[in-house]
């Protein structure tokens, strides 16, 4: 059970301010959605949460089972799936799993068990020996997710995991996430530009231009802004500006 609290986090890349004084709370055991248009600062926030970018201005506080924990220690329990294609094109599905097994230091029996479950879950069993570059877009994403989940994390950071994936695969993907959430009590933070996905999250954080506009349960937020979906909300915002 990992929860994260972000306090007054700012980040700039030369002239561009990617995050402006962001304060957020990611409660444990929930599916959090980071929702916002392109350039809202979602990827920067995720990378900073994982320590891939230094936290220079502001604070990030991690808690594991209600006790404070340092980033260095908590990293062993966080899995990450970057947005960009980030697998090795010439390695097969099986070889990817073995590679990450060794990097994470998973014992062999445990690995076998987990790999079987994951392969079943992602329906990649038939494609075990296919090279990553020969996988379709959706399968490629699933392989990425598998590599991330292999270590049995307590928190998962997903950066636009369903980008470019067909509707059926997306539904399967969501089914997987819910299973993880309810069976293993994993905290999930996902960034997405698909507003319809936002409604499936338990809590959403609306980002725009490096600012947090609002946080809350999706239905509450929609009611508050008097819109039917999040697309409308952002269009309304853009029109106001």
């Amino acid at each position: 059970m990992i929860s994260v609290e972000v306090q007054h986090l700012s980040r700039r890349f030369k002239e561009i301010k990617a995050l402006k004084d962001v304060s957020l709370c990611f409660e444990a055991g929930m599916i959090h959605g980071l929702i916002g248009p392109e350039g809202a600062g979602k990827t920067t926030l995720l990378r900073t949460l994982l320590g891939l970018l230094d936290c220079k201005e502001g604070h990030i506080l991690y808690q594991k089972d209600d006790a404070p924990i340092t980033l260095k220690k908590v990293r062993a329990h966080i899995a990450y799936m970057p947005e960009k294609q980030s697998l090795y094109g010439d390695l097969s599905v099986r070889e990817h799993l073995h590679f990450f097994k060794d990097l994470y230091g998973i014992p062999p029996q445990e690995f076998q068990q987990r790999a079987d479950v994951l392969l079943h879950l992602t329906r990649l069993e038939k494609f075990k020996d296919r090279a990553a570059r020969q996988l379709s877009g959706g399968m490629y994403k699933k392989l990425g997710l598998m590599c991330a989940l292999l270590r049995a994390p307590q928190m998962v950071l997903l950066d636009e995991p369903t980008n470019g994936v067909d509707p059926i695969s997306r539904r399967e993907f969501w089914a997987m996430l819910h299973e993880l959430r309810f069976e293993k009590n994993i905290t999930i933070i996902m960034a997405t530009a698909y507003m319809d996905e936002a409604e499936r999250c338990e809590k959403v954080h609306l980002l725009e231009g490096g600012n947090v506009i609002d946080s809350g349960v999706p239905q509450d937020l929609m009611r508050r802004y008097a819109v039917d979906n999040f697309d409308e909300l952002f269009i309304k915002k853009a029109e106001q500006a």
């Binding site: 891939l52 990293r75 966080i78 899995a79 990450y80 960009k84 294609q85 980030s86 990097l103």
Partner: peptide, 13 residues
Amino acid sequence: ENGSMELLLSTPV
């Protein structure tokens, strides 16, 4: 360039 470094860095290596 391929982006695989980002994933590699998220592991304990």
